[in-house]
């Protein structure tokens, strides 16, 4: 399978989101790929509120089975969540469990006006009722559960998609 070019997808995603941006729009990226992507979108869209970042390690539903994920990072939401329209950004949408965890964490900061999900690639395989509002690319055939699709840094600020077969 040939993967689409991440840079082209980022440009397309930016234009999808742009008409819906208001002066109040805030953005939160989910570690790690989602933060890289969010930084790009945040700059391209010229959002005035500072970018938020979240590591959902403490909200994951597999903690009871797998324990704590190693190296959790600090979540930082440098704007008032209460009443804010928020675009939640992740690189790849899969089961929807990360999105669920991110929503739970976000609501512990306050009650947002609305939350929209923006992702670069929807790889299929949803296990929860989660749907993105903005999506740059949807895989026609969902990936196998053993496959891993992720965003990677390609140097000089560029991003690229990588598929790993287990």
């Amino acid at each position: 399978m040939t993967l689409p070019d991440a840079e082209q997808l980022i440009a397309a995603l930016t234009e999808q989101i742009r008409p819906h941006v208001t002066a109040d729009t805030a953005m939160v990226g989910i570690h790690t790929g989602g933060v890289w992507l969010a930084k790009r979108l945040h700059a391209a869209l010229g959002l005035s509120k500072p970018l938020g970042v979240m590591d959902v390690a403490f909200y994951r539903d597999d903690y009871g089975k797998k324990g704590l994920h190693p190296n959790p990072r600090k979540s930082e939401i440098p704007f008032d969540v209460a009443g804010a329209p928020i675009i939640l950004v992740d690189d790849v949408l899969y089961t929807g469990r990360t999105t669920r965890a991110a929503l739970n964490e976000l609501f512990d900061y306050g009650r947002p006006a609305r939350v929209d999900l923006a992702v670069l690639v929807d790889r299929g395989g949803r296990e929860l009722p989660v749907a993105p509002r903005f999506v740059a690319h949807t895989l026609e055939t969902p990936l196998a559960p053993t496959d891993s699709l992720q965003l990677e840094e390609a140097g000089e600020g560029a991003l690229t998609l990588r598929l790993i077969h287990a």
Binding site: D55, F58, Y109
Partner: peptide, 14 residues
């Protein structure tokens, strides 16, 4: 990262 929880509206993790 746990130090940051004290600054949230809901000071709880699940």
């Amino acid at each position: 990262p746990f130090t940051e929880v004290a600054e949230r509206e809901v000071k709880k993790l699940p």
